[in-house]
Write a protein that binds this DNA or RNA. Structure first.
Length: 516
DNA sequence: TCTTCCACGTT
DNA sequence: CAACGTGGAAG
């Protein structure tokens, strides 16, 4: 069994002036402590023209992802995977059709204080990896735009400016690091990733704002045997499946989405069934004899499909098992960008993979303590201090104390998954991983033996934050600026190409155990 | 809007 | 079996 690990936000998380998000993680077994820094060789110029890859020639060679219902996402025109070892990597979204169904309606993902999984589940098929090379797969979810939305009249519409971005967190796939053969052997599932609206979430879940639109992104980082956790010579690629964009909500807004979830999520089977069954069950629940109006007919009135979310995806010739489309048939080829307000800022948000070339860079160690105002959502008051105290993080393998889990969330919560690999959560301004303003990234990865509770630094003390009502621009009043870019998912037409991953092994030699 | 609790289902 | 993941309803 692989050690569980958790990664949390470091106080470094937000580096206004440097745009270097820092991540802290606990890698039980693998890395005592390390720091990884991504740096853009191009100086962070988001508008730099990416090196292009010849997708045409590449397509033919595409390996079909066997029987999976995966979509190929391959190389968009913006693909710039030219660096060694990263050029042939391709991702296929599993159950793309299902994703598209949701996308057409306007995907919504529930966010709760305790954390809610995503459905559809984000799973991908990966090809093109070097069998023996080690890779780290991770996800982040970045704001798709600067808006806040509302759902009225059966449709989504913009309602003002977005709240300041949450502290960004990365979800490192629990199998990471693993060999290319491992990743390509089967689907890579991000099933356990959870979304929360708790700004002070101690579990490492991805923090989002309700009624805001987000875009999940997939990143693959090559780690080599020399540097364990990503070497200086390692690059990373970022891939986006635009059909996975969604609006975070605390309760479903569009009944169509509710129905899709119920129809497709096995855990929601209890909500399926005939009206008769409904009535019977409802009556039973209420201990009454008379039937109650089935909930499905109460508030679940289907309205016209007015969602602008991704209505255009329909009728575009998407086929099931589109993996067969291989590289040439990318989503971008088939999908038309959804109309605003759902349209992502960049030209072709649909799908693109950004591969960044390595560049040696030093980690930015700018320490800072930005004041972050207290969130309106306060999860465990009594424990906040311990949970978010920066000191909890430390280089040392085990945060000494690691404060007990918050009330209600017993230790078991953390350990429940101890038997399996834990995903790492990184925090920082992830949205800029490939973003313009991002000149470098810093990941701190303390190693912990067991699933130590996340001990994130209080984001509110480390991130500049403005009142909810303030605009992103205002948010920048803070000493530093980063929020602006942070807010917007790839606002640049083309991502910076040369990102660098720099690893510092700070506490010993990490062990790269093969995932089992 | 958001949170909590619930029945009911999967794993 | 227990733990956990669901959406609904009530607050």
């Amino acid at each position: 069994m692989r050690p569980s690990r958790t990664v949390d936000t470091l106080g470094l998380g937000y580096r206004p002036n440097v745009n270097v998000p820092a991540l802290n993680c606990h890698l039980n077994t693998c890395v005592p402590w390390c720091q990884v820094v991504f740096v853009m060789a191009n100086g962070g110029d988001p508008f730099a023209i990416p090196e292009r890859m010849d997708t045409d020639t590449d397509s033919p060679k595409e390996t079909k992802p066997e029987n999976h219902t995966c979509s190929s996402s391959p190389l968009s025109p913006e693909t710039t995977c030219t660096q060694q070892g990263m050029e042939g990597i391709k991702f296929y979204l599993h159950e793309r059709e299902l994703w598209e169904k949701f996308h057409e309606v306007g995907t919504e993902m529930i966010i709760t204080k305790a954390g809610r999984r995503m459905f559809p589940c984000y799973k991908v098929k990966v090809t093109g990896l070097s069998p023996k090379a080690k890779y780290i797969l991770l996800m982040d979810i970045v704001p798709a735009d600067d808006h806040r939305y509302k759902f009225a009249d059966n449709k989504w519409s913009v309602m003002g400016k977005a709240e300041p971005a949450m502290p960004g967190r990365l979800y490192v796939h629990p199998d990471s690091p693993a060999t290319g053969s491992h990743w390509t052997r089967q689907l890579v599932s991000f099933q356990k990733l959870k979304l929360t609206n708790n700004h002070l979430d101690p579990f490492g879940h991805i923090i989002l704002n309700s009624m805001h639109k987000y875009q999940p992104r997939l990143h693959i980082v090559k780690a080599d045997e020399y540097n364990r956790f990503g070497s200086k010579n390692t690059a990373f690629c970022t891939h986006v499946f635009s059909e996975t964009a969604f609006i975070a909500v605390t309760s479903y807004q569009n009944h169509k989405i509710t129905q899709l979830k119920i129809e497709n999520n096995p855990f929601a089977k209890g909500f399926r069934g005939s009206d008769d069954m409904e009535l019977h069950r409802m009556a039973k629940i209420q201990g009454k004899e008379y039937p109650v109006v089935p909930r499905s007919s109460v508030r679940q009135r289907v309205g016209p499909s007015g969602s602008l979310f991704g209505g255009n995806a329909r009728g575009l010739g998407l086929h099931p098992y589109s993996c067969e489309n291989g590289v040439s048939s990318t989503t971008q080829d088939l999908l038309i960008p959804p109309p605003a307000p759902y349209t992502l800022p960049q030209p072709d948000p649909h799908e693109h993979m950004h591969c960044n070339k390595r560049k040696a860079v030093d980690s930015c160690s700018t320490a800072e303590n930005h004041q972050y105002r207290k969130p309106y959502i306060d999860s465990s008051p009594s424990n906040d201090e311990s949970y978010y105290h920066p000191s909890a993080y430390p280089p040392p393998p085990l945060p000494p104390t690691v404060h007990p889990p918050p009330p209600g969330l017993s230790d078991s919560t953390y350990r429940s998954e101890a038997g399996q690999r834990q995903a790492c959560m990184f925090a920082g301004s992830e949205s800029r991983l490939d973003n313009l303003s991002c000149t470098s990234w810093s990941y701190s990865c303390p190693l912990t033996p067991d699933m130590a509770p996340m001990t994130p630094t209080d984001p509110y003390t480390t991130f500049p934050h403005q009142p909810y009502s303030s605009s992103p621009q205002n948010a920048q009043l803070s000493p530093s600026p980063p929020l602006r870019e942070y807010h917007r998912y790839p606002s640049s037409p083309s991502p910076p190409h040369y990102h660098t991953l720099h690893t510092h092994v700070m506490g010993g030699v990490p062990e790269w155990s093969e995932p089992t």
